[in-house]
Design a binder for these strands. Structure first.
Length: 504
RNA sequence: GCUCGUGUGGUGUAGUUCGGUCCAUCAUGUCGCCCUCUCGAGGCGACGACCCGGGUUCAAAUCCCGGCACGAGCACCA
């Protein structure tokens, strides 16, 4: 060891003074970027509102824009009218959800369906220049040829015929599946997915936003490539399942004589409790009545988790900590919940919620010396929220959880040490006399019936009890002492207060 | 099958570019303790990892070669 040390002193003295390593925080440097001249984009399909999975894109892109002095283009990739047709209400909802997640409006908002003339123009230019052609092969036939690195017969058609066919496609003269516009690539590319890839196809299904105006629609790889160029996108951050998109688009950029943006990737994320994030899948299950709507608490959508009470800061910190690795990962929901706990805890008031409440009679023995019946408990134990919950003077009836009564010697939080026997709690002292367990409880006067709804995979579990009826407001998030975080969902004039479970 | 990508504790993540106190960072988790009054909060502590096999080197998580495992793409979806 000493020999090594000596050697190091001679050859590499700095190595001896290395500091204990620290964890790098925040996103890594954006390659090839100039501060203030960075443009990123977030391009969801508006076939439904945003899911938790989408929020990664919002967070990463908006954060990169923030630290690089750049901007984010929110682009609706709505060029599929058939397989994943757009949902008209999703556009504005996504804009709003983007703002909620990132804390800032998108700098630019565009819809691909509004910009069709531009894409068609570029398609025509591509054909005219000879690096695009109209292919009338069936998908199966083309695949067969492509797999053998063989040209399809349409490839040799001259430009005028290609243009003529393109016109015919646009005017509706060719049925769906009857033709496609392809980008010429080298056919001996090792990756078969890249060979003469399709850029535009025919769709006769009307588009929910622009109707039947267009019969030819660009595919993602073409539309996205053109639009990124037009918007001056400098950096693309996308899932690594889209690596082939990068390669296809790079070929197209080459044809046009453009330089492709820097591209970064993230791996696939699965939430253990939910699996993947399929918008179309959720859309189907909602319409089947399996879920009450996009904001059903069992769904991994932004609207659902937001309604449940997750903070956008927690979502941001969560994704930022995962960073930009290309690993495919599975995350337990618990880790987002832990993040949320730490972000909301300091500004979340405490309340007592007694489950399975049993009535207990308070008895104050004559032998007790100083006794105070008044109870007031801090709204937050650390004082981050000033003020007390003033319960007033405790009369004789209180509620205690069934399980706590069995403990016998217990402390009623914020009030007194008691001994509970046969439904009677004999007060020992207001002050703590020993290290007995502390239980939450409620005087009858300030308690009100309440039901806590806990979403489960197979339905909603309902836990009933009594809630501390002190300054409760519909919509507020509280931490139920010894239970967990919950949202006050509904305070009806009659009947129990409804609460929805957030997490522990 | 072809193509591409990824392998650091239970789960994530830092460190890998340019080999060196790296007996490896941080968070979460699990377990334990504490709490000036929540045993699902908070505080403190413990546990726990470089995919495998070779090679280069005084020195390998880091470089080279070969395996293996996992994931994704191969749609006229995005």
């Amino acid at each position: 060891m000493d020999a090594v040390r000596k050697l190091l002193e001679e050859t590499n003295p700095e190595a001896l003074h290395r500091e204990k390593q620290q964890k790098r925080v925040g996103l890594p440097e954006l390659p090839n970027s100039i501060k203030g001249e960075v443009t990123l984009r977030f391009a969801p399909n508006p076939n439904g509102p945003l899911s938790l999975g989408h929020s990664r894109g919002v967070v990463i892109n908006s954060e990169l824009a923030k630290i690089n002095g750049g901007r984010v283009v929110l682009r609706f990739d709505d060029t599929d009218t058939k397989v994943k047709p757009p949902e008209p209400t999703a556009y504005s909802q996504i804009e709003e959800e983007y703002e909620w997640i990132s804390g800032k409006k998108a700098d630019v908002v565009i819809r691909a369906s509004d910009r069709m003339p531009i894409y068609l123009e570029y398609a025509e230019k591509m054909i005219y220049e000879g690096f695009g052609y109209t292919c009338r092969c069936t998908a199966q036939n083309f695949k067969k040829l492509r797999d053998n690195m063989e040209e399809c017969p349409c490839r040799e058609n001259d430009v005028s015929l290609n243009l003529e066919l393109f016109e015919s496609m646009k005017s509706g003269g060719i049925p769906e599946g009857g033709a496609v516009i392809r980008v010429k690539t080298s056919l001996d590319l090792p990756n078969p997915a890249l060979r003469d890839w399709p850029a535009l196809r025919i769709q006769h299904t009307p588009h929910p936003m622009v109707g039947e105006k267009y019969k030819v629609w660009p595919l993602l790889d073409f539309q996205s490539a053109i639009e990124d160029r037009l918007q001056g996108v400098t950096h693309i951050v996308r899932g690594k399942d889209l690596m082939d998109s990068t390669r296809k688009q790079t070929i197209l950029y080459g044809h046009f004589g453009w330089n492709y943006p820097e591209t970064l990737y993230w791996g696939r994320v699965k939430l253990l409790e939910f699996g993947g994030f399929s918008t179309s899948g959720m859309r189907m299950e909602i319409s089947e009545g399996k879920y009450s709507g996009w904001d059903d608490p069992r769904l991994p959508t932004i609207s659902a988790i937001r309604k449940r009470g997750f903070s956008s800061q927690a979502i941001r910190e969560f994704w930022l900590e995962l960073g930009l690795t290309q690993k495919d990962i599975s995350i337990p929901m618990q880790s987002i919940e832990a993040k949320n706990s730490s972000t909301i805890d300091s500004f979340t008031e405490r309340r007592s919620f007694v489950r399975s409440p049993d009535e207990v009679i308070i008895e104050i023995p004559d032998t007790i010396g100083d006794y105070v019946a008044e109870v007031s408990i801090p709204k937050h134990p650390d004082g981050t929220i000033p003020g007390m919950r003033e319960w007033g003077a405790v009369s004789e009836k209180i509620f205690v959880e069934k399980d706590d009564i069995g403990i016998v010697d217990i402390r009623l939080k914020g009030f007194a040490d008691v001994k509970i026997l046969d439904g009677v709690a004999v007060v020992i002292s207001n002050e703590r006399t020993d290290r007995r367990a502390i239980a939450h409880w409620l005087p009858v006067e300030i308690s009100r019936e309440a039901v806590l709804e806990i979403p489960q995979a197979d339905g909603i579990q309902k836990v009933s009890g009594v809630i501390e009826d002190y300054e409760l407001v519909e919509g507020m998030i509280v931490q139920l002492e010894r239970v967990g975080f919950a949202r006050i969902k509904k305070i009806p004039n009659n009947g129990p207060i409804m609460m929805s479970w957030l997490h522990g």
